[in-house]
Design a protein around this nucleic acid. Structure first.
Lengths: 142, 142
DNA sequence: TATGGTTGTAATAAGTATAGTTACAACAAA
DNA sequence: TTTGTTGTAACTATACTTATTACAACCATA
């Protein structure tokens, strides 16, 4: 399965918040306009980003902002905020392998460290990319 | 979303085929016994592995075998065989970002190379692990 | 050549995740 | 008090995973 579009959506949203922060009040409707997804979806993602401390959202008056320096928000932060993976594990195991079989009894132990290496490699790369990189490249293109 | 259990299941299946190759005819029913999943699921995965050239499956008489040296079958081979990801892309993009918005117009281009780096990091680690590693560790535990 | 065990596959179902949509109470500022 | 916004519940549609039943196609061998 692919990693859900919530992740790219979250990056899109954060980028918009920074690009338009001086000229617009960046509401969920505004963000829905740029991303072309439903405002309620935007609000859900904003809620997840808020819970992770990656955005401030103003109740009532409205508008979102980013409370941290952009180079301190990595893709890994965003990924963890919006992609709720069970036990934080990238790979899903089939339940209840047969304990009476020598392979079934040991497969989990044998695979665990190797799959963790794969996950760590991916996460290391995710943490090497920050919103600052995205803003630099985006501003270059605008 | 997590990567589906088809992947760990496929590794389990391949491990069984090699461990039991001298003592049993390794059929889908036999494999279903060790993995504790339905024989039809096993046959589907065997079909995908077969299409990728990672196993031979005998029609009629039954039984599966591995036609290649174990150190030439990597986790990446297995991953690609069973995990059918759209366009081979790990990250799913939200469709139709607003082309009239400077962010929506550029977000895909800005993210593409960075997400590809993440995917490549993961795939590089996957390709560094082979069935030979799994067999060595499994035999140690048996 | 008939048998029996096996594979390949279709059809169906339940469970779960994503994504869209409507509706509305809670909220804050003007 | 009005207005615009957020947070959230409820419902729907779609899609993927996994399980299961059923059966035709297949093939070694008795």
């Amino acid at each position: 399965m692919q990693i859900s579009s919530r992740f790219t959506l979250a990056v899109h949203i954060l980028t918009c918040i920074d690009v338009f922060k001086d000229d617009y009040k960046v509401t969920s409707d505004f963000l829905a306009g740029s991303t072309n997804v439903n405002p309620v979806i935007v609000r859900k993602i904003l809620g997840q980003l808020k819970a992770a401390g990656l955005v401030n959202v103003a109740r009532g008056s409205g508008g979102a902002s980013i409370p941290r320096p952009l180079n301190e928000i990595s893709f890994l932060d965003i990924y963890h905020a919006v992609e709720c993976i069970e036990n934080g594990e990238l790979f899903h195991f089939h339940e209840n392998p047969n304990g009476d079989c020598p392979v079934g009894r040991n497969i989990h132990v044998v695979l665990d460290d190797k799959l963790m290496r794969v996950q760590k490699a991916m996460e290391a790369e995710l943490s090497s990319i920050t919103l600052e990189d995205i803003m630099r490249d985006t501003r270059k293109l605008i």
